[in-house]
Design a protein around this nucleic acid. Structure first.
Lengths: 220, 220, 220, 220
DNA sequence: GATGAATGAGATTTCATTCAT
DNA sequence: TATGAATGAAATCTCATTCAT
């Protein structure tokens, strides 16, 4: 099998291991539980309000704990997001690698559909983080190497897959990789954010068909 | 010609006519100029920081004017965004209607490519607004009917076009419409936001090919 | 006349010009007045509580203004102290240079007594700043070159004067310079801080006599 | 021998016996060790940061123990300082009494030099306490009788010694006593705080000479 | 005896908005 | 019409102290 390591989204940087103040203390069971509550609450509030608009106060209220406690585990809102991001990037990166070469035939489309299904269920968990991240990045928060690279590496990985199957000269694989990322990310964001009463099977069918025909299909 | 009015993005609501305090006064040349500086500055800061993270202070500094002046023209940050949004929605809505039925052949792809070119150049102007809007909406700002509907109407319009050409039973036109919106919006956002040194022609070729093959192509 | 410039306390660094945020705005009369009130209040509270223990709240209350206003002129407590320090260092430095060579006879003692009188009245104004500064420095606040050097330069200047007159081999002029600084600074601090009902003439007589006999007198 | 009791620094008040909560329990070896670690850590942090700026957290971290433990031995930061002060005052007071009458001749200077040597080595141990104390007092902490009196009693004691030897009418012994305290305290503080690479013998020579000539010398 | 966890009061700082000139 | 000044409510963050294990 091909070694993808050169374009891998990996090596999550140390600064993202999450909860800076928490790392300097030895957490007991109770501490880990509280930290978990805060992470969950953070994710939920990010989802509802977006990054800049969420207040630490919203988070601690939801987590049913106090301000003081929050700063026992995270040095600020940004720190909490970084902690969340850590897991997200790890899992997403892993998932990306499971997208094998997609053949031109129906079995290729089926494989893509299956992969999209897994993406979808993971996205359900992580979209608050992904969105908060993107907003925070734009607002000027520094996420180190990861921030600058993760998206590009994702797109590059997909570009590589596309290059394998699609020889169409009017398709620039790098552009197509980014289009693929854009499409699936934003579409699922719309899905999570708005109440569109789509049938789940329809969604997967349509997405797989569009992506396969448009992006992974060998033409002429 | 078919009447699209039933799915049109239209009837921009009164509350979006922008600059509430400004409307109660008759602006002279000087006033219009100042207001223009504020609108431009607002757009630029929204682009750089996002909606929640921009401060009125950033805007007035960039516009080289004062806090007091800002409130002479807009009742708050939201009001300024609504003013910006007004033009954006009008133009974008108009553009959407110019997407005629896209035929299955090469001339269909060419038409799509041409339309995407126009979308692209308009997006360059408006992406700060579009993004600020989407963030503000998530953060809980109310934009009236428009906020709730605009995206859906866009998607519905595209769905309609898709329905015309693509009879593929595995494609749900409503889903596909939303996929199309997601794809072009997010892709161009990435383009504006990151420095990806793509060739402009490549980008249009690839996008048109993907969208045409994946979304508008009549399949066997 | 000898050029003292090589050991001068001079060239007050730019970062001490005081009131960082205030420098970025054009102050009108009213603004300068408010800034003055804050500086005065700061000095007074530093005198009463010391640096670490003073709260921004104490300062704004005394200045009869609001928290928001404080941050319009200073970025924090430290910034205000630096602003105060600016003037203090300038004046003190100037005063230091007016200490001419002190001769061994009665006229030398008289000159010293006169200089101490001027020192005393200046110290009355500046002791809150000097003390806040010394505390802040110990607490870890960075004052740039000035912080590190001012005291040393003072002592060096006095050492130079001592070297001129006192050839006593058991006196190390550098040590003696520092002793002189220590003596006059701390003694006047005690005077300001505690209520010792000393007669002003007695104080000057005694100080001048001690310093002249002990430090500046030519021995055998 | 003269009875100095009337000007003595004595009768250390009960409230300074240190570690209020600790006194209500019988400490065993383990407990005394922990208490010692806390006292040492307290002194070290006071030295580095000053009184107001030291946090209980700094102390327990340095002592490698926990917040809970701290409050097992001291009721608060002030309580710890009082405990430290207890020993300091006792030793310093004792030292002060060992300053006998200083004669006008070389043997007087030698005696003074010897005494200053002992002062110096004691000051090395206690300067963090002395300084924390002086800062705390200024910041408004109440130290009972001791706080108000100790310094004055010191100065008075020295004034008495001066009165014995120095009949100079231009010297007010009370002022001179305070000058002596100021000089030796502050000079050694500078020595501890800054890195001045003075030779130890030079320092003692110079100090003794200055103090003897300036303060204790019988003049014409 | 010892410790990590939790708390909440209070201090700092920000920022949208109003006001006086 | 324009602007610097002022404000105060709200958000962030700190830290001494108490509690449960």
């Amino acid at each position: 099998m091909r070694d993808d390591r050169d374009i891998a989204v990996q090596d999550v940087p140390e600064e993202l291991r999450g909860g800076t103040p928490a790392q300097e203390r030895k957490l007991r069971a109770q501490g880990r539980k509280t930290m978990g509550k805060l992470l969950d609450a953070g994710s939920e509030v990010f989802a509802k309000r977006g990054y800049s608009a969420t207040r630490v106060d919203d988070i601690v209220k939801l987590a049913k704990t106090s301000h003081g406690t929050f700063y026992l585990y995270f040095s600020n809102k940004e720190d909490l997001l970084k902690a969340l991001l850590h897991d997200c990037v790890e899992d997403m990166s892993e998932l990306a690698f499971t997208l094998d070469d997609i053949g031109p035939g129906p079995e290729g489309e089926a494989a893509l559909r299956e992969w999209l299904g897994r993406y979808q269920s993971m996205y359900e968990d992580y979209w608050p983080v992904i969105h908060a991240w993107s907003e925070a990045e734009q607002a000027g928060v520094e996420f180190g190497a990861l921030g600058r690279e993760a998206l590009g590496q994702f797109a590059a990985l997909f570009a590589d897959r596309i290059r394998q199957t699609n020889k169409d000269e009017r398709i620039n694989p790098d552009v197509a990789g980014l289009v693929f990322v854009a499409m699936i990310e934003r579409f699922h964001f719309f899905l999570e954010t708005r109440q569109m009463g789509f049938d789940a099977e329809d969604v997967l069918d349509t997405l797989a068909r569009i992506a396969h025909r448009g992006i992974f299909h060998v033409h002429d």
